[in-house]
Amino acid sequence: MPRVKKIIKVKNKQGLHARPAALFVQIANKFESVITVKKDKDIVNGKSIMGILMLGAEKGSVIQIEADGKDAYQAITELEALLLKDE
C-alpha cells in the first residue's frame, strides 16, 4: 500500500477555511485512503470538516498532507491541486 506525503504552502486566499475547507473534506472523502493533515504539531483527520477548521491554516501557512491507502497518489494529487489554486 502506498503512503504519500507532501508539504504544501497554502496559496488559497481564504486559507484552508470556508469553501476551500469544505471542498477539501469533500474531495478527501472520495478516497479510500486514510488522509491526515498536519500543521505545526497538530495532526487532524483530513476527512473531517471540524478537524480541518481547527487547524486554522491561513494563506501562506505550510501544511503536510499525507495519504495512506491504495488510492493515495490520486488523493494527494487532487488535494494539492485544490490547495494551489490561487483564487
Binding site: A22, V25, Q26, V44, N45, K47, S48, I49, M50, G51
Partner: peptide, 15 residues
C-alpha cells in the same frame, strides 16, 4: 444546509 450536513457527517465528531 450543506455545511450542516458536513458537520453531521463529520468523522472526527462521530468517532
Amino acid at each position: 444546509f450543506n455545511a450542516h450536513l458536513l458537520v453531521l457527517e463529520d468523522r472526527m465528531f462521530i468517532e
